[in-house]
Write a protein that binds this DNA or RNA. Structure first.
Length: 305
DNA sequence: CTCGATCCCTGGACGC
DNA sequence: TGCGTCCAGGGATCGA
């Protein structure tokens, strides 16, 4: 599941592998995850890939008209935005190599390779954007977690009344953090996912800030987490999943205190946390609006909840 | 503003 | 071996 470290890994790989290449032609498969497939088919051929950047969880393929330097100011800025969703992969492959199943876009490059977008679930997104439309789209997103200052982070979180987990996942607040790194960061900072952002102390937020940056940086060094089928641009899985402390570890021991890791739904997402290290806010765990009739029935197996 | 619910989609895990 | 069912989850959207 590509989040910031995975997308950063892919961006770096692609930068090394395809920057400077020219797109000769494009062929598309299923297009229901693309904003504007006809525009993609029309605009990409003949364009040069100036560079590949990460923007939040997006890959940004900067496009130019000339193979060398952007010269005329008349050429407006343009880019292909690619979101990998859950299962997306962007792989430069030899044309002779048989395409993987679920290959939905193939861009023929001027060195004889094809840049292929593969995405089984099509939870990703692809869009060709230019000029003001591109700027507007990028402005929708919040702070870059690796570039933000601690003051920016604190004021952003303190301004919101939502739960901290929801805020970390909200791309308009912070761009790039997803479910895995949110949970890992909250555990490291000893903050409960259901805690309200506005209720967190400055000290807690400083800890959380450091946790987010430390974990993301380490995950980037380890080329991200490969949970299901994430592969980077070189087709290599990441290593960070071996360092997960809470994510996917329901029922296992907290490596810090030995308590059993729990899973609850916060902000509509599975949230893994240590009930001992991460103290729940007042009122958490109070049943919302169910009658007591089902407490016996739901108490079936041991670790599950 | 914030919430939960719903939908999108397919593969993998699991039960029988 | 092969069903059926559930679940994963980022993000858009809608109603409360």
């Amino acid at each position: 599941m590509p989040e910031l470290p995975e997308v950063e890994t892919v961006a770096r790989g692609l930068q090394a592998l395809i920057a400077g290449r020219k797109i000769l032609s494009v062929s598309l498969g299923k297009t229901d995850f693309m904003d504007n497939p006809a525009t993609i088919e029309k605009e990409l051929p003949g364009r040069c890939i100036l560079g590949v950047e990460r923007y939040g969880k997006f890959l940004l393929l900067r496009l130019g008209t000339a193979p060398e330097i952007e010269s005329t100011q008349s050429a407006e800025e343009s880019a292909l935005l690619v979101h990998l969703g859950m299962t997306g992969m962007l792989l430069p492959q030899a044309v002779a190599e048989p395409p993987k199943k679920h290959t939905h876009a193939a861009m023929l490059l001027d060195d004889g390779r094809e840049l292929r977008y593969v995405d089984a679930r099509r939870f990703g997104r692809m869009a060709y954007l230019a000029g003001e439309v591109l700027q507007k789209e990028l402005q929708r997103f919040g702070l870059d977690p690796l570039a933000m200052s601690v003051e920016e982070f604190v004021s952003e979180i303190h301004a919101r009344r939502a739960r901290i987990k929801a805020l970390l996942l909200d791309q308009s607040v912070i761009r790039g953090v997803g479910n895995i790194y949110a949970d890992e960061s909250l555990w490291k900072a000893k903050v409960h996912p259901a805690q309200l952002g506005v209720r967190l102390t400055t000290d807690e937020l400083h800890k959380l800030y450091r946790a987010i940056q430390g974990i993301l940086r380490k995950a980037i060094v380890l080329r991200g987490s490969s949970i299901s089928d994430f592969l980077d641009a070189d087709g290599i899985p990441g290593e960070y999943q071996r360092h997960h402390r809470v994510y996917g570890r329901e029922g296992k021991r907290c490596v810090r205190c030995g308590a059993a890791i729990r899973r609850v739904i916060v902000a509509g997402r599975s949230s893994y946390y240590c009930p001992n290290c991460q103290k729940a806010p007042r009122g958490f765990g109070v049943k919302r609006k169910k009658s007591k009739a089902r407490s016996a029935a739901s108490n079936t197996n041991s670790g599950k909840r």
